[in-house]
Simulated assay, not measured.
Amino acid sequence: MPKHSLKTSRSSCRSAIQHVIFEQPWGQRVVRVYEPDKYIIELGEPMNVVIKRYYVTGMTLEEVAERSSTPISIVNKPIFHSVSDEMFE
């Protein structure tokens, strides 16, 4: 396998967006892109961000759990409460 410089690799890497950003049924925003070999890569926001976004809108723990299809025992973990509020400004 030939070695490539970072500059060569970046300039030869082309991706095509398959569709615009959309929201999954559980609330996660995602976009899909084609990589150079035509495989589809899905990029989605982390679920802790999705859950925090629901908290910011005033949902209860139960509502967040139902909307995100995440067990309440997971929704209530501290990691989901520690997402920076700056992300939502």
Rank of each mutant, 00 (worst) to 15 (best):
P36W: 11
I17R: 14
H4S: 05
V49C: 06
K7S: 12
P2L: 13
E62N: 02
N76R: 12
W26P: 09
K7V: 11
S84R: 07
R67I: 02
D85T: 06
L6P: 11
K7Y: 07
T60W: 03
Q18F: 10
S5I: 08
M1F: 13
S68N: 09
S68R: 09
K7M: 10
V64K: 04
H4L: 15
S12D: 15
S84W: 07
M47K: 06
I21T: 12
R53G: 04
K38D: 10
T60M: 01
I79M: 05
Y54F: 13
Q24M: 15
S5P: 09
D85E: 11
I17F: 08
L61R: 01
V56R: 01
E23D: 05
A65K: 05
V20T: 10
W26N: 15
K7W: 05
I74G: 00
S82E: 12
F88V: 06
R67Q: 05
V50Q: 02
I72K: 12
I72T: 07
V56Y: 00
K38Y: 10
M59W: 03
R10S: 10
P71R: 06
R14Q: 11
V31R: 13
F22S: 09
E35T: 11
G27H: 12
P78S: 08
Y34Q: 11
E62A: 04
E63K: 01
M1T: 13
R32Y: 02
I79P: 00
Q28I: 13
G58D: 00
S69N: 11
E23Y: 01
E45I: 11
E45Q: 15
P71F: 06
L61T: 00
K77M: 10
E66G: 04
V20C: 07
R29G: 00
E66T: 10
S84K: 11
I74D: 01
S82I: 02
V75M: 02
I74P: 00
G27K: 10
Y34T: 05
F22D: 10
S69R: 13
Q18A: 15
I41M: 13
V20F: 09
T60K: 01
N48T: 05
F80W: 05
S12R: 12
M59S: 03
Q24W: 09
M1R: 08
S84Y: 04
M87G: 02
I21L: 07
A16D: 14
I17V: 14
S12W: 12
N76W: 04
I21K: 07
K3T: 12
H4Q: 12
A65C: 03
R32A: 02
I79F: 02
A65H: 04
N48L: 03
P78M: 03
S73E: 14
P78V: 08
Y55T: 02
T8D: 15
S73Y: 11
I17L: 06
T57M: 00
P25K: 09
I72M: 04
V30K: 06
I40F: 12
V64A: 08
E23I: 04
V56A: 01
Q28E: 15
I40K: 15
V75R: 01
S5V: 08
R14F: 13
V75Y: 02
M87E: 05
Y54Q: 08
S11I: 14
E23M: 04
G27V: 06
I21N: 07
N76Q: 14
S69C: 12
V30Y: 08
T60G: 01
V31K: 07
V50T: 12
P2Y: 05
I17M: 09
